[in-house]
């Protein structure tokens, strides 16, 4: 009890001895003004700055739009081999009548398959492989009918630099021939109606004779 009385007396003594600083309000105001001067803009940004910023933004929008809307093959999708799944076709004619698609194909049931896009199940292209008989031996024929529009596949690589051209049955055909020891390797591509066609033939005969023969078979 006595301790508490002592503490009370001490506090009372402190209160009586306290003298307030008469300059305190001024000091506080000074401090506040100092802080405001560091936080606020000293001057607003000049007009030319905002004009330049607006011009830069407008230029960026114009350049982006012009590149975006004029870019070539803007809708082309590239399909890797992994993104496709090959399914065998048992009977080509049945397949064609079921799909109700109107494309050129070889009436041959040796090796036919359809490449489906794994994610969507869309029919990407049809692959026909068979052994034809040429003038002096077998010919290996690989024929692809691309059904998917605006698509690009890995096998296109072989067909991008075909520089010889010929016209057969009213179709413009681009092709090239690679000479081997006893055979020729013929690569050709053409478009007919809305589909693209890619033909590879390993043959003993000349490139143009082979093209005439196989394009003729397709058209008749």
């Amino acid at each position: 009890m006595e301790d508490k009385q002592d503490l009370f007396d001490k506090l009372m003594q402190m209160k009586d001895s306290y003298e307030p600083d008469p300059e305190l309000p001024e000091k506080v105001l000074q401090k506040i003004n100092q802080r405001e001067s560091t936080v606020a803009f000293r001057e607003p940004a000049p007009k030319w700055f905002w004009v330049a910023l607006a011009c830069l933004f407008a230029a960026t929008v114009i350049v982006y739009c012009s590149v975006y809307f004029t870019r070539p093959f803007s809708n082309i999708k590239i399909y890797s081999a992994e993104s496709l799944e090959m399914n065998e076709i048992d009977a080509m004619q049945n397949f064609v009548s079921q799909t109700k698609l109107n494309f050129l194909y070889f009436d041959n049931d040796e090796h036919n398959s359809v490449a489906l896009v794994r994610k969507t199940g869309e029919k990407a292209y049809i692959l026909q492989e068979f052994q034809g008989a040429g003038q002096s031996g077998f010919e290996y024929v690989k024929f692809r009918i691309v059904l998917l529009q605006n698509a690009q596949f890995e096998f296109y690589d072989v067909f991008t630099s075909l520089n010889d051209t010929t016209e057969l049955y009213g179709i413009d055909i681009q092709y090239t021939v690679l000479s081997r020891m006893n055979k020729n390797e013929v690569y050709a591509k053409f478009e007919y109606e809305k589909y693209s066609y890619f033909l590879e033939v390993r043959t003993n005969d000349s490139g143009t004779a082979v093209l005439e023969r196989y394009v003729g078979q397709l058209m008749n």
């Binding site: 096998f155 991008t160 630099s161 520089n163 690679l178 690569y187």
Partner: peptide, 11 residues
């Protein structure tokens, strides 16, 4: 897969 010569280049 292929050796293609034409158009001034070999690929």
């Amino acid at each position: 897969y292929g050796i293609v010569v034409g158009g001034g280049s070999a690929k």
